[in-house]
Computed example of a mutant assay.
Amino acid sequence: MRVAVISDVHANVLALEAVLADIARHDVEKILNLGDHFAGPLWPRKTAAVMAELDMIAIRGNTDRYLAVGDADLLDEDDLKIIDAIEGEPMDWLKQLPETAIYADAIFMSHGAPRSDETYWLDRKVKKHGFRVSSLEEVEAELPHGDYPVYCCGHTHIARVVTLDDGRIVFNPGSVGRPSFNMNDPVSAARLSPAAAYAIVELSAGKWHVNLRQVAYDNMAASAMARAWGNETWARDLAEGRTR
């Protein structure tokens, strides 16, 4: 079994197309999508059109929920433009997405932690200090009922693989559309990268392996689009990699 896991596309169709081209070279049987599809000052409608053609299993992210519910307290001016852009079939699709899913009775999919799409699983927010890496105990405390060999999550945009003491794996593939810190090893400090991130998960010789991947794309064009929307924060993040 070999699957690709993507997350946090955030309307970045250029990054999504680059990732899909890379996925096509790896003979995967399915794409698993962990949510946050269209919320971003980029190309929501074009992203929706590309996603509509994919053979994938998708779940809902926290920004998907904000857009689908349409709660004014959760939305800003960019969000209202995005809602207008995806009105119709894309919004209908967004509204029917499940909170979690299980693939092949082996891979548990959630956006944040299994019980909340807003809970950071493999990292913890620390007041005044950004984020820190979650302890094994904190990771295990969020595990859902049931016993699966692999769990995947998004939300933080931070690519990381954690192997629990019993051999189970919890990982975050990072963000396709707004990359953040990428952990290249479990000890060193993170390195910023503007490249699109995703993961390939494979069962080989009875063992599960997670390959975190980065794919270069025209991130400066994405940065320019964010600037055209008037969003300098996104423009900077897309040009340099997202700081936390």
Rank of each mutant, 00 (worst) to 15 (best):
204 S>F: 09
230 G>H: 08
217 Y>A: 02
243 T>W: 09
236 R>M: 11
235 A>F: 07
196 A>F: 02
205 A>P: 01
211 N>A: 15
242 R>Q: 14
232 E>Q: 13
225 M>E: 13
233 T>F: 12
224 A>H: 13
220 M>D: 11
207 K>G: 02
197 A>Q: 15
238 L>D: 08
231 N>D: 15
196 A>T: 00
218 D>C: 07
193 S>I: 05
211 N>P: 00
204 S>G: 02
229 W>H: 07
209 H>C: 07
199 A>I: 05
203 L>E: 12
212 L>F: 05
221 A>L: 11
217 Y>K: 03
243 T>N: 10
241 G>Y: 06
193 S>C: 14
210 V>A: 08
195 A>Y: 08
227 R>I: 05
211 N>C: 10
236 R>A: 10
219 N>V: 02
196 A>E: 00
227 R>T: 10
226 A>G: 09
205 A>T: 01
226 A>I: 13
215 V>P: 03
240 E>Y: 15
204 S>R: 14
229 W>S: 00
231 N>A: 03
195 A>M: 13
236 R>G: 06
238 L>C: 11
196 A>G: 02
219 N>T: 04
218 D>M: 06
211 N>F: 12
197 A>H: 04
192 L>N: 02
243 T>Y: 08
206 G>C: 06
238 L>Y: 07
198 Y>M: 09
211 N>M: 12
236 R>C: 05
234 W>L: 05
192 L>P: 03
200 I>C: 03
196 A>K: 01
208 W>Q: 05
201 V>R: 00
227 R>Q: 14
197 A>T: 09
233 T>D: 13
204 S>W: 04
223 S>N: 09
213 R>H: 06
224 A>Y: 08
243 T>E: 14
234 W>N: 02
240 E>K: 14
228 A>G: 13
203 L>N: 08
195 A>T: 02
228 A>L: 09
222 A>H: 01
200 I>H: 03
223 S>Q: 07
206 G>T: 07
202 E>N: 05
223 S>C: 10
215 V>K: 04
204 S>P: 00
230 G>K: 09
232 E>D: 15
224 A>S: 14
226 A>C: 12
225 M>K: 15
202 E>A: 12
191 R>Q: 14
237 D>F: 06
207 K>S: 13
212 L>P: 06
230 G>Q: 08
194 P>Y: 04
